[in-house]
Design a protein around this nucleic acid. Structure first.
Length: 624
RNA sequence: GGCCCCGUAGUUCAAUGGAUAGAAUAAGAGUUUCCUAAACUUUAGAUGCAGGUUCGAUUCCUGCCGGGGCUACCA
């Protein structure tokens, strides 16, 4: 049987960076109760129009009733005009009358222009509420067999993580959690760019100027320490270029022949040849970096199921190129280089193997993707969390993998996001304008501390508890701030004023959770009696409606790869709850059953907040 | 030049082709004998421009203007 679609959301999914022709339609799984209701309404509406007008529409469009009108669900009459000739208001009236008579759940209606607003009975809402036994798992699907791999973070090992990485990490982690909640099996991974000229630069500078300095000896975090030597190299290198230029060499030549660079390149050759000293130092210094990264990841509350290192994967892909040549996916030019012709797809030709037989970045990515599926045979798709400057690269990569005939290649997605810029412009590590991740986390914590101390609500906390709370709130503010924005949009980050703790913010939502916990602590003896006969306050009804759409919001966030949908949903829920809280007494309710209901309702809201926030990687405090 | 993304209150963000474009913040006015005022209530304020499709366009199409990105035998 066909019926369209869900309570509020009809999603046509079209990933932003894919051609419209590749768009596909996803049907959102609405909550069972809603589906049953809409199916029921649709059947009756068809029957009604068929009885009255002799024809019925193929489908019926529903949407949430706007706040300023009375009603809970709205039937849009306009689309029916295609098959039913007549005045939309009259059609609405006749359907409304019919539904009120025939359908138990519909207790009234009104028609505004072409919108038929249906009022649903309190018992319908109460039944929905009673049927959910456990709000902590409400809306969350059990894990299916289809596995997705989500790649995120993927840093270079020559510098510490900064705000740009943080957006990547928060996005990737959150999308992975959302997919899990939507019923996917998920592998989180990253690819670490641990080899190449950049790390040799740090190694060289450390050898020359380091005097054996280590993270232990200096107390400097490993990634920072290595980063410092990368900067040191750059400084020396620039001096050498100036020196050469002053000797009359052209800039190009100076850049290419500066002694430090030549030496770093020599080091890279030694590394590739497996020179024990070079490889040893490389391992040591990368080890420092990983220790540093791990601290930052832990502090951010993110994790990975596996790691891929470029030092292991950079030779992958060549075999696949050979296979592709045999299949005719690629072709060889006269000079021996291998290419893929993508002109039919509206793109260019793309090189996949140099004329000297060495790999390019694309070669490696092809090989790594294939390797990942070998490592995890249940993978049926992959998500790459990478900035939007690499859109072209991934478009090409996905096309090539499709051409090579892999079944999973149709489920590849580039989770592309906009750059984080500062008021002064782009972040540039060499110009020292980057916002360092660790510093930012520290600063957020500090702000949370200042505000908490000013409010003075947690004086009985131990020092450890306070510290943990400041971190929870500070990270809540930062993560929410970044995740509530549509991923593809750029973020302008003003370190001085950007992250707020009031209004549409993480702490506001955390605060609401803490407030509810306070109520629950006080509501000690609850009678477990039913609340079937209570009549709902308008604010209660609004809350129930918002709770109803949580399951489909999770699905929508998953199909759109958008944590922003979860963030916005949670904010709406919380805003609604605070209004309820301020206008309706919970513990002071007149009857025990009303009190019981309101406490249960508050608890449900808290559980959904917790669950939604966990998908954003944000913790919630019991008190604040 | 070609291709892609983005232009919504002063600012930061919303809005499945649907109703009078929602919030937050900044500005103005209120609310604590009462469950945590990081809150609530309330007043003002916006779709870059020009066409088109549609009963209906912030949303889809075309052109223009403005911002960003990509366009290497680099990663």
């Amino acid at each position: 049987m066909k019926y369209t679609i869900s309570y509020r959301i009809k999603f046509y999914l079209c990933p932003r960076n894919q051609h419209p022709k590749q768009c596909f339609i996803i049907r959102i799984k609405a909550h069972k109760d809603q589906m049953v209701l809409q199916e029921k309404l649709t059947t009756h509406i068809k029957k009604a129009t068929s009885d009255i007008y002799g024809v019925s529409p193929e489908s019926v469009e529903f949407q949430a009733t706007r706040k300023e009108f009375e009603g809970d669900i709205t039937v849009v009459v306009f689309p029916m005009l295609k098959v039913i000739k007549g005045n939309p208001v009259q059609i609405g009236e006749s359907i409304g009358t019919y539904l009120t008579e025939k359908v138990d759940e519909v207790s009234g209606y009104n028609v505004v222009k072409g919108f038929l607003n249906l009022v649903l009975s309190d018992s319908y809402f109460l039944e929905f509420f009673s049927n959910i036994s456990n709000f902590s798992s409400y809306g969350i699907e059990s894990t299916g067999t289809e596995a997705m791999m989500v790649e995120y973070a993927s840093p270079n090992t020559n510098k510490p993580l900064h705000l740009g990485h943080m957006r990547n990490i928060l996005l990737g982690y959150s999308v992975a959690e959302i997919l899990k909640a939507a019923g996917k099996k998920v592998y989180k991974t990253q690819i670490i760019n641990d080899r190449g000229i950049h790390i040799c630069k740090s190694m060289l500078a450390w050898k020359r100027y380091g005097n054996g300095e280590t993270p232990d000896s200096s107390g400097i975090k490993g990634d920072k320490l290595v980063g410092n030597y990368y900067v040191k190299f750059d400084k020396v290198y620039k001096e050498e270029i100036e020196e050469l230029k002053s000797q009359g060499k052209p800039e190009e030549e100076a850049k290419a022949t500066a002694p430090s660079l030549m030496e770093a390149q020599e080091m890279l050759r030694k590394w590739e040849a497996g020179d024990p000293d070079t490889v040893g130092l490389w391992k040591t210094m990368n080890g420092w970096v990983y220790d540093g990264f791990d601290k930052t990841y832990t502090s951010m509350g993110v994790d990975f199921d596996s790691y891929y290192y470029e030092s292991d994967t950079y030779l992958l892909g060549k075999d696949n190129i050979e296979e592709g040549l045999a299949k005719g996916v690629f072709y060889r030019k006269e000079d021996g280089s291998v290419w893929c012709d993508l002109t039919e797809e509206g793109l260019d030709e793309k090189i996949v193997l140099r004329s000297d037989g060495t790999a390019v970045y694309m070669t490696q990515d092809i090989g790594t993707a294939i390797q990942r599926v070998k490592d995890h045979p249940d993978i049926n798709g992959m998500i790459y969390t990478v900035g939007n400057e690499q859109e072209y690269h991934f478009k090409v990569l996905f096309l090539i993998l499709k051409k090579l005939g892999f079944s999973w290649a149709k489920n590849l997605y580039h989770l592309s996001y906009g750059m984080v810029d500062l008021p002064s412009g782009k972040m540039k590590s060499r110009e020292g304008t980057v916002v360092d991740a660790d510093d930012l986390i520290e600063e957020m914590s500090k702000t949370a501390k200042d505000i908490s101390e000013e409010l003075g609500k947690i004086e009985e906390f131990s020092e450890d508890e306070k510290k943990e709370l400041y971190h929870t709130i500070g990270m809540g503010a930062l993560k929410y701030y970044i995740l509530k924005v549509d991923p593809r949009k750029g973020i302008l980050f003003n370190p001085k004023e950007s992250v707020d703790f009031q209004g549409n913010t993480g702490p506001f939502i955390q605060y609401t959770y803490a407030r509810i916990q306070s109520i629950l602590r006080k509501a000690t003896s609850l009678d477990e009696g039913s609340f079937e006969n209570i009549s709902l306050h308008p604010k209660e009804k609004e809350l129930l409606k918002q709770l109803m759409i949580f399951p489909e919001t999770i699905q929508a966030a998953a199909s759109n790869y958008s944590p922003a949908l979860i963030a916005n949903y949670t904010y709406d829920l919380v805003k609604e709850f605070n209004s309820f809280y301020q206008n309706v007494t919970i513990l002071g309710a007149e009857s025990p059953s009303e009190k019981n209901f309101r406490v249960q309702l508050s608890n449900a809201v808290a559980e959904v907040i917790k669950s939604a926030f966990s998908m954003l990687g944000i913790n919630v405090p019991e008190r604040m």
